[in-house]
Design a protein around this nucleic acid. Structure first.
Lengths: 219, 219
DNA sequence: AACCTCATGAACATACTTATCATCGAAGAC
DNA sequence: GTCTTCGATGATAAGTATGTTCATGAGGTT
């Protein structure tokens, strides 16, 4: 279990780190919004603890950035900032805890969130195509299909959000980790190759004026 | 949405009841553990607000009793009773809130729990037409109907404000994101196409001199 | 060096969307 | 009733988004 701790106050950050490590979790630390984005992208996390008051990139922007990945988030906010917490929950955070907190409460909330968060599946299967996330391999009718890094990331994004229309911006920024200006055909090309390699011409739908949607019948 | 309020202090119980009723929820009240068990069984509930300090049957026993039904539970406990809250969360409660609480916080927590428990269907259905917001798809009698971006946005606006007359200005500025000067027939044409594609000629009413209103019987 | 893989974006082709016009019809005012 | 204003409609041209091909170059491997 990997937990990303985003908190600029090193005292609190350290306290959290020791508590979680002691409880058997592995932790990463980011001390400002920029670091947080980088670290978040560099590694898969099971949970994010997020302080809303951060240098450089605001906690809310970060929350938006994290949301599409479906990684659960617990907001850590100062006591009394009721509006912050409400806004955070409305933006899709899974829970919040107020500073100062008791370590036992922190652990209880983390366990509660982990318990109710469905572990994101490791293997996806549809129409003879099997996508294995941890090994990053794809097979079609038993034959191995080789996808490039970008193709694979794009595909996972679509799979993780199956049946949801994703904007070009969301897709591009998730895969390329840079701002989308919308002047190239790069994304189209990658989509085209994925469709072709997997025979997914009609599974990955074009949502005109928006982006793409992976259409898979609900289990 | 039916919410069961289990709380022995009638002042607090009443406050919660008024708050929730005002927000459009329906409430049931139990003032001790026995009543709570009876009421809980007599009716299906979407959410339970549970005070842990109760006469007759303890809150914890009640929590155990409720747990198998999977009905979400928010614990309402006195400030400072950290151990109670932790024990409650460990026993499977979905959240807690401390007395005294702000009504806004109560509502936000209820919404958050409802959202993550039964993810609010972003689906609208009427007269064989199904509008799915996240996938941005529309079907009529099972057949997929393809709407353009503007048509879809316009339709959502009407659905989100069903039974409310919306001015041309409101509609135009929401969908087109620019100021409305009122000299074109553009809006009319889009309305026309929506009506046609969905067979909603008499569902989307023209409000003469104002704009349009989507008329749907309240659930 | 020669070769490969991959990402990229220019150029063009295609498909789709939208605004506008002209005209017709309907509602309300008198 | 007549007049006036507002809304409905169908056609179409202009605009915009996407698909596809292809040449290039970066970066790595042999």
């Amino acid at each position: 279990m990997n937990i990303l701790i985003i908190e600029d106050d090193r005292t609190i950050s350290g306290l959290m780190g020791r508590t979680l490590t002691g409880a058997g979790y592995e932790c990463g630390f980011a001390y400002d919004g920029e670091e947080a984005e980088e670290l978040f992208d560099s590694h898969p996390w099971d949970l994010v603890l997020l302080d809303l008051m951060l240098p450089k990139v605001s906690g809310y922007d970060l929350l938006e950035y994290i949301a599409p990945s479906k990684t659960p988030v617990i907001i850590v906010s100062a006591m009394g900032q009721v509006n912050d917490r409400i806004r955070g929950l409305k933006m899709g955070a899974d829970d919040y805890i107020c500073k100062p907190f008791q370590v036992a409460e922190l652990l209880a909330r983390i366990e509660a969130v982990i318990r109710r968060t469905a572990p994101s599946e490791d293997v996806f299967e549809y129409r003879g195509v099997v996508v294995n996330n941890s090994s990053r391999t794809v097979t079609k009718d038993g034959e191995e299909v080789s996808l490039t890094v970008k193709e694979f990331d794009l595909l996972s994004m679509l799979i993780n959000n199956r049946n949801v229309a994703l904007s070009r911006r969301q897709l591009y920024e998730y895969v390329w980790k840079e701002e989308y200006y919308g002047e190239t055909r790069t994304l189209d090309n990658h989509i085209k190759r994925i469709r072709q390699k997997l025979g997914y011409e009609d599974v990955i739908k074009t949502v005109f004026g928006i982006g793409y949607r992976m259409e898979v019948p609900e289990a």
